[in-house]
Design a protein around this nucleic acid. Structure first.
Lengths: 234, 234
DNA sequence: TAATCTGATTTGGTATACCAAAAATCGTTG
DNA sequence: CAACGATTTTTGGTATACCAAATCAGATTA
């Protein structure tokens, strides 16, 4: 489960806390405290924070405490606009270059999601969905594209996570994923493009709804809401 | 001239050295030595190296010395493929959202390049070209897009730099840039898209030629070719 | 002579100490 | 009582010390 290097392990811890909501958007991340909590020194904690900053999950400002990013609705829609472009390109290239093995792997991910949809909790469902999209990007055989795409998905993790609570999408999601897989199998560029477009269009809609319902990421969670740890006596 | 934070200043120094060729692709970057050379400690040097790694100019491998990236031709062409998609999206969004001020700023950059083309050395010419493309991305009013695009341009800096030595492209580059500007002014999505596509297509061609001529970035410059500094007596 | 093993050295990873700037606290003053 | 200001505290930035892994060199051996 643990990544290779220490900073990455720490980054994963923090990432989970952010995604889970333990670290709320707007909260400050104090190097010393968090490092002490995890039993490491500031140095790897600093690096971990930079990793998260690269992913867009935390915001760095010079000489100030880093804060958990509070993406606005526009931030999210902008990012999705880029993701659409990246995935359309992925789809086009995958149609051209994907091997049969890669496509059948994509299908198997799709079927795993289809079968397990109801048993999975929304976190698992979510991770499978992410796997699906990343496998397509990888099938483009364009490393840079796959990496950039993955970076965007990570950045959107929380927003997508919040919007994925509704379970009603089951049929639509499964159908759209199925269309994409079929498009790849039949090397049908247009079908893939259209399906991806529709799929992400619905994602955008549900994110908008989520923001309207509970603008979680909009509210800066002001005040000293750092890490919820037992404050030891001074 | 100097950026804000120390690590960024150091990163800029290293970046220039890499771009200029003082640090050849494949060369190892030793934290201690380089830090000492610049008169700083390892800590900000480490951060600077991470910045460059994020930009794709150096490659990090765990527990080993970082090396200056040696992008293969495929790496470069892959990246350009992504840049094309990003710039086409930029163009489309800029046509929709750019203000008149932004468009006229883009035109002024274009004219600056047009007039100064022959006086500029290829570094300056190059920087103006980069300004031009980044201004378009910014005019999309999509921050994420502009940032990702800028990151890609930085990553391609050296490859584009190497390919830009030929001065013969003058008319074509100027004409294509002019077409793009006109497309923006006339809010002509198709003209913009076509011009961008053609423009980057030629970039790709000249990069391929550059790689064939002198596969500079292909040759790993093996052996201890770190920093060309006077070795002080041990 | 070439391959390999072993010890010395280099080098990145981590912890820690110190500093300066930012922030918070509290007292002062209009 | 509110607003401002000085002082203390907190916190990120930098330098340095220490460690373990990786690399390099030299010697030993087949």
């Amino acid at each position: 489960m643990g990544e290779n290097t220490l900073p990455e392990q720490i980054a994963m811890q923090l990432r989970r806390q952010i995604l889970h909501g333990t670290l709320r958007p707007g909260a400050t991340i104090k190097e010393r405290d968090n490092a002490a909590d995890l039993g490491v020194s500031r140095t790897p904690m600093r690096e971990a924070i930079r990793i998260l900053a690269k992913e867009g999950l935390v915001e760095l400002r010079p000489a100030r405490s880093p804060v958990v990013a509070s993406p606005t609705l526009k931030d999210v829609t902008d990012a999705i606009t880029v993701i659409v472009a990246l995935e359309e390109l992925s789809g086009k290239l995958a149609v051209e270059h994907a091997t049969r093995e890669e496509i059948s792997e994509i299908r198997s991910i799709h079927e795993r999601m289809q079968q397990g949809y109801d048993q999975f909790d929304h976190v698992e469902r979510f991770e499978v969905d992410m796997e699906f999209h990343m496998a397509i990007a990888r099938a483009s055989h364009n490393v840079a594209l796959a990496e950039t795409h993955a970076a965007y998905l990570r950045r959107m993790w929380r927003a997508r996570f919040l919007s994925a609570r509704t379970r009603r999408n089951r049929e639509r999601v499964v159908r759209q994923h199925g269309d994409i897989v079929r498009g790849l199998e039949e090397r049908d560029t247009d079908l893939v493009a259209v399906s991806i477009h529709a799929h992400l269009g619905h994602l955008l809609d549900s994110i908008k709804v989520a923001f309207a319902d509970a603008p979680d990421d909009a509210r800066p969670a002001e005040e000293n809401e750092t890490i919820p740890e037992a404050a030891d006596a001074k």
